[in-house]
Simulated scan of single mutants.
Amino acid sequence: MLKNNIEKQREKMIAAAKMYGYSSKLTVKYSQELDKMLNVVLFENNTGHEKIS
């Protein structure tokens, strides 16, 4: 489920970048949200916590 959310967030970020530019507030917001999701995955993978499917 997290993988699907990550992919959806990535797509939103790319769409925003294409429409408004890489440094727009919306693109940066989506990028930061994506970073948080990816950090969760990295934490889980590095600490042996529950893996995502």
Results as ranks from 00 to 15, higher is better:
34 L>F: 02
25 K>P: 15
9 Q>K: 12
45 N>K: 12
40 V>N: 15
8 K>N: 08
45 N>Y: 02
33 E>W: 08
27 T>L: 04
46 N>F: 07
51 K>A: 12
2 L>C: 02
24 S>L: 06
11 E>I: 03
34 L>R: 01
45 N>R: 13
13 M>A: 07
27 T>R: 10
29 K>L: 15
25 K>D: 14
27 T>K: 03
33 E>I: 14
33 E>N: 13
19 M>S: 10
21 G>F: 02
38 L>V: 11
43 F>D: 15
40 V>Y: 07
31 S>E: 05
21 G>D: 06
17 A>K: 02
34 L>A: 04
22 Y>R: 10
25 K>Q: 11
49 H>M: 15
23 S>A: 10
37 M>A: 06
34 L>H: 01
48 G>Q: 11
46 N>S: 15
48 G>T: 08
39 N>K: 09
43 F>C: 10
28 V>R: 08
41 V>K: 14
15 A>H: 05
34 L>K: 13
17 A>Q: 07
35 D>Q: 12
15 A>E: 08
2 L>N: 00
30 Y>S: 01
35 D>L: 13
50 E>F: 00
37 M>F: 09
53 S>P: 10
33 E>L: 12
36 K>I: 08
39 N>Y: 01
29 K>Q: 15
28 V>K: 10
17 A>W: 01
42 L>C: 11
30 Y>Q: 05
51 K>G: 04
33 E>D: 15
45 N>T: 04
13 M>P: 07
5 N>T: 03
10 R>P: 03
16 A>G: 08
16 A>R: 12
11 E>V: 00
28 V>Y: 00
25 K>V: 14
47 T>G: 08
38 L>G: 05
51 K>Y: 04
7 E>Q: 14
3 K>S: 03
14 I>Q: 05
2 L>F: 00
11 E>L: 05
32 Q>R: 15
23 S>F: 06
21 G>P: 06
6 I>L: 14
24 S>E: 15
1 M>D: 15
53 S>W: 04
42 L>A: 06
17 A>F: 00
18 K>I: 03
13 M>N: 02
11 E>T: 01
33 E>V: 08
11 E>W: 00
16 A>K: 08
2 L>R: 08
8 K>G: 00
12 K>S: 04
53 S>H: 03
7 E>V: 12
9 Q>F: 03
18 K>E: 09
48 G>D: 04
19 M>R: 09
42 L>I: 09
32 Q>D: 13
47 T>A: 01
39 N>A: 00
23 S>K: 07
23 S>G: 04
25 K>L: 13
31 S>Q: 03
13 M>G: 00
37 M>K: 14
6 I>H: 05
11 E>Y: 00
25 K>C: 14
39 N>C: 01
23 S>E: 11
50 E>W: 03
39 N>I: 01
25 K>G: 12
29 K>C: 08
1 M>T: 11
49 H>C: 02
43 F>K: 13
52 I>S: 02
2 L>V: 03
17 A>M: 07
38 L>K: 12
3 K>G: 10
12 K>V: 00
41 V>H: 05
28 V>M: 09
51 K>C: 13
50 E>S: 14
41 V>F: 00
13 M>C: 14
48 G>K: 06
52 I>Y: 01
7 E>K: 11
1 M>S: 15
37 M>Y: 05
48 G>P: 07
38 L>S: 06
14 I>V: 14
39 N>P: 00
26 L>F: 13
40 V>I: 14
52 I>D: 02
40 V>W: 09
48 G>W: 05
48 G>N: 09
2 L>Q: 02
